[in-house]
Design a protein around this nucleic acid. Sequence first.
DNA 1: CGCTAATCATTAGTGCACTAATCATTCGAA
DNA 2: TTCGAATGATTAGTGCACTAATGATTAGCG
Lengths: 174, 174
Amino acid sequence: MPGANGAPASKAAQGSQATQDSQAEQDDLLLEQQLCFALTVASRSVVGAYKPVLDRLGLTHPQYLVMLCLWEASPRSVRDISEALAQEPATISPLLRRLETAGFITRQRMEGNERTLEVRLTPRGAALREQATEVPGIMMARLGLTREQVRQLHASMMDLIAATRPRTDDPPRR
Amino acid sequence: MPGANGAPASKAAQGSQATQDSQAEQDDLLLEQQLCFALTVASRSVVGAYKPVLDRLGLTHPQYLVMLCLWEASPRSVRDISEALAQEPATISPLLRRLETAGFITRQRMEGNERTLEVRLTPRGAALREQATEVPGIMMARLGLTREQVRQLHASMMDLIAATRPRTDDPPRR
DNA sequence: CGCTAATCATTAGTGCACTAATCATTCGAA
DNA sequence: TTCGAATGATTAGTGCACTAATGATTAGCG
């Protein structure tokens, strides 16, 4: 457990009225209470916990997410996948190349529109879904979470994601 | 509104209703309800929201975390920092090299123990803290979160991190 | 003592994730 | 119909994060 050390070293709150708030602001830079820090550590930790499980499928975690994506709909474009995963096409592109090398997908240009790439499950990629059905249950058990707790945390994360979206008074793109 | 839910571990409604659970398991592979997915997106989104703010300080987000670390205690070893940030020394090493190039820290071997590196704030690095004090407030406002919501979410993340730690019946390393 | 084992940091190599630039194709308006 | 703009994917370049291997130094035991 990192950071059981730092002594907060309370500073004298300035003579103003809101002693409580001043104190809180005083500590705003303490590493141990940064939400962004807890969030990144949680993300890395949870993804790390998936690793031994996904290793058995021959997938990394980002690759697993792409496969989830394709198990829901099979011929999909790069842009489609990138939007579903909230990532740049430039991130997805090399990832798909590795999944093709692994034999889980094929990549070919769409006939009638040569700009678009059709990403399609191979039989082997489709079959992998059978093994993958176990994953969520294994992970819930490994993390000691109930389905309800997962639902709650998921909702919190979605709220947080929504909070990071640009304000609605911005240029209405599209 | 964004964090109005982050309720702590609510009780597990252990439903013995097979129909309910079967349906739930049926949907376990839906991308849109994966906690790990929401978590990684939330992490990337929040870190991304910091970018314009940290750009003004000349820091990336991981570099910001290192600086938070050093503002709490100035001569620290690489291992010390890596444990505080829950990251590998191999990740911290090149990061520190960039912070040195930027002029925020110095790196020199400890006298009396040449294995250990002393990472120390430069005056410029120490002075940067003044500008950084604004960051948490700006980010809370930008995300539309109250101090209490931040505290709740932080607690949820810490619980999740704790859940990923190996069982206590494992070999007592160290 | 002296040599082995442990500790600390770095480098090498892989994979993600982003921005910016590039290339090909297709759309659309003059 | 033709040419410029838009679209779709990839490549280049930077930075993070991990594991494994390496090198350097110290600790500690026989």
